[in-house]
Design a protein around this nucleic acid. Sequence first.
DNA 1: TGTGAGAGCGCCCTCTGCTGGAATACC
DNA 2: AGGTATTCCAGCAGAGGGCGCTCTCACA
Length: 451
Amino acid sequence: MAAVAGAVVLPGQGQAAVHSVSQGMALTLREGICVFYDLELAQIHVLQEEGQEKSSESKATEKPLDMLRMEIDRDNDAIAFENNIQQLSPSEEGEGKKLFSTVGEKKSQSCKASENLSELCNESKEREYATASEQTVVKNSKNLKFQACAPRQKKGEKEGFSCCFCSFTSARLSNLKRHLKTHSDEKRYLCHLCPKAFRTATLLHNHVNTHTGTKPYKCSDCDTAFVTRGELSRHRRYKHTLEKPFKCTICEYSSVEASKMRRHIRSHTGERPYPCDLCSYASKDAYKLKRHMLTHTGEKRYECCVCRARFTQSGTMKIHMLQKHGENVPKHQCPHCSTLISRKSDLGVHLRNLHSYMEEAIKCSACEAVFHERYAFLQHRKTHRGGKGFKCAQCSYTCNQKNMRKHAENCGLGRTETAAPRKRSKEKNKIRENPKRVKSEVTLKSFQDEK
DNA sequence: TGTGAGAGCGCCCTCTGCTGGAATACC
DNA sequence: AGGTATTCCAGCAGAGGGCGCTCTCACA
């Protein structure tokens, strides 16, 4: 279920509405408008007490924008309206606490989605609170006819002409007329290579370039080429100028694109708008959900070209290749001891287990020395192997660990808590030599048999 | 009316680190 | 011999970079 926030005109009341799209569905507003007319016929009452309160506030700001939020189920081609009535005026946008800012930020009067975090949060909350009973689903919305309303001028507004479908305003009627085309289905420019159509020749031209592979915009620094100038511009910010206009106000993160900042903000808010249908997992972005779904399907799309072992993620296979089939693989040296560990992540485990400070100290049973680090304790224990570090609990006899076991039995204490190390026979070592390799060969054989 | 600039969404990728079972070493 | 600790390893998710493509709007 992909949720799309939007707003529709309330016919009869002549109120404009802001539309806010969060999922990149260009048809949302238009469809929303169409659907609303049907909703009215279906006698759906959307103005609740909360909405009326908002309306009164709207009068005060002279920007009455009663919003009807809707959810669009892309899979079922259905639109559901929530009972939640929300308004968003420019003044309110300013009041909401912004969790990120842009360098040279400018206010847009367009009907684009707001980048205000509070709005993002509201969206997620409303999605969360909306229940099936509160929603009315209208099927086959695409079959409904689009009805345009005439442009009108609002009183006391400098811009002069306002769009009745969104918050767009302009001083020139021609601009408004042109803008109104964005709410229509008219796409005169057809691609001769695929069924797509576009509103302008430039859009079509760019699109055709994606078919032909024509990339007229070349980067002067690295010879990479792009279809549009915008792509080149962004590429330069990523690779060469390193300009990152979007700054997080909570941490040091900054990004080239606003969408990356929105994604980053979710790591602060904890918002997870992409739930898994099969388990309780929910993701912060679409790709992670897609990746997660592989755990349900069991698909392992990455195969080791050497041993044919398969992996779910490319990174896992890469590490496998390096560790199993790589030559002169560098090991990670523990900074506190001489241990060499093949994986960096396991070095972290090693550090946590052996070198971290422990509130609850370990006491040596042989000499009552106290240690707050496990590794130091283990090293200390070794010092008792040769010397007389072990004291009998029954009498005052002291000796080394090996002899203490014998003495303890004589003293009636039974076996001591630690046993002397046993030496493995050479033959046994031979058998144990590289058992993993033998097993992996067996695994490979069974894998090939399966195939 | 055409075009450029920028915004927005989507997709895929890499890097990173945690987790838990298996293998191995140690006692 | 058997228990325990440590290391190896694959699975998996978090976070972010980079780019493809399309759209809207301002401007010439």
